[in-house]
Amino acid sequence: MTAIDVAILLFLAITAVTIARIRDLWAAVMFTGIYSFLSASWMLLLDAPDVSFTEAAVGAGISTVLMLSTLALTGTTEKASGAKFRPIPFMVVVLTGCMLIYGTLDMPQIGDPSDPIHIHPSPSFVERTQGDMHGLPNVVTAVLGSYRGYDTLGETTVVFTAGIAVLLILRRGKEEDSKTGGRPGSAAASGDNA
């Protein structure tokens, strides 16, 4: 582990604790954005630039914006929970944490070629893509788009279905239509002003 790894993991932990403890929701949303950006940097250090792109754009960008618009609709402070120190939940959390840390001791080294994930599906997978894909170098795209095309089609459908569901819940029917109908006129008016 280099100093950068340690620094990013440390910042991740600090940000997580801050999010859990802070009562000002606006600040908490900002901290989740920071957390996502740190995760994106961490993914980049783990040589996963694809995941890093996604985390930076979705986590730090879009979801922060959506959380802020939700706050604009609800409110920006959380009621104090009147928290007393409860020993049993505390013990459960500490025990679970210890078990998880104990579990990581058995994990293989990062990038070890004898990892189960590198051996299990087929050791020749990486070699086979060169021939199968006519020399397209990106194995990740080949696996996602071609070898597991069904999965990706399913994922795309999930994104589509989620979008439809959000629209069905949040859309405001007629009002929205009349607004979009009035849009060109108002846009032209503001254009004249400029």
């Binding site: 879009i62 990706t152 994922e155 795309t156 994104v159 959000v166 629209l167 949040l170």
Partner: peptide, 23 residues
Amino acid sequence: VELGVGVTVTAVMTMIFYAFAGR
């Protein structure tokens, strides 16, 4: 296939933003 994924994801993300911001 990637073009299809890209078009859907762009549209869904933008549409969700419209839904929230419209409210």
